[in-house]
Design a protein around this nucleic acid. Structure first.
Lengths: 157, 157
DNA sequence: TATTGTTATACTCTATAACTATA
DNA sequence: TATAGTTATAGAGTATAACAATA
């Protein structure tokens, strides 16, 4: 039920802008914190940790587990444990690749896809984004953020 | 020195938009992840954990430790430990409030202020934000994000 | 020999609960 | 009695290192 997410702006608001104050970085970090919290709660409703939910989403691209580790910014050992848990729940399956039998490719099961969809749908509906902004503004925001995401990414291996 | 921050869009890009795909939430979460990583590295350069850096920044508003705990989304016990460490390093001082001697108000020392400024300045300079967007776009983005941040915040205690 | 993934171990982070002092 | 903060303990999360199988 999506807790208040107190960012205590009541007292934060009275400080004047400063380098770390009301810059875009500051704003984005705060909004992101809120969204992260929302995501955590939605994941919890499905009995998942935030990292498991992120893993599930990332698995749509069918990465190797090593690649998944980089995407999640954790170690391969951790990925191994996480995918194992997700497999036990029937959300993913791990099958050895035919071209290289060392790698085990993890794929979403239909149920796994369903969970990803469900979380995504609720995130879109429940987030501050959809509440505070109109359609046009939302599209503008997405465009700006995608520019950020695509640019300045040194490594595309 | 600000790692590549691989988000593996090389393969992510080929999936078509879906509820959790290229929505604003998705985009903002990804950008936020990048910024969070940047912040973590900048903090590390000063020998601080990300949470310590966030605490330092939040302390500009001179909150009680309880209020600080809510702002950082952690328990008062944790705040106690963190402010203790920061005090040992000479970045903050904790003095008992005169009006209520149970509360110890934490304040930044000049050196603490300096660290906050330094991190903030580098964050503004180093982040994807300033690299990818022009001034006008940046202002627009800030405006949109602040709208998000101000709205939809159920509790203002 | 190098690489993918797994398991075992240890360490770090964070919370819960018990405690002290003030209100 | 209730509240702000601290300390002690326990639990979750995460990484490092040793291992197995394949390349």
């Amino acid at each position: 039920m999506l807790e208040p997410m107190d960012t205590t702006p009541g007292s934060a608001e009275r400080s004047e802008p400063s380098p770390l104050g009301r810059t875009a970085g500051e704003a984005i970090l705060r909004v992101a914190q809120r969204l992260t919290d929302v995501l955590a709660e939605l994941a919890a409703e499905h009995g998942l940790t935030p990292l498991q939910a992120r893993a599930l989403r990332a698995l749509r691209d069918r990465p190797s587990q090593g690649r998944l580790a980089r995407a999640l910014r954790c170690t391969p050992s951790r990925v191994s444990l996480i995918t194992g848990e997700l497999e036990e729940r029937g959300l993913v399956t791990r099958v050895p690749s035919r071209s290289d039998r060392r790698v085990r490719v993890a794929r979403l099961t239909p149920e796994g896809e369903q969970v990803v969809e469900a979380i995504g749908a609720r995130l879109a509906r429940e987030s501050p984004l959809t509440h505070a902004l109109g359609h046009e503004e939302l599209r503008l925001l997405i465009a700006l953020l995608n520019r950020l995401d695509d640019a300045d990414d040194p490594a595309h291996p």
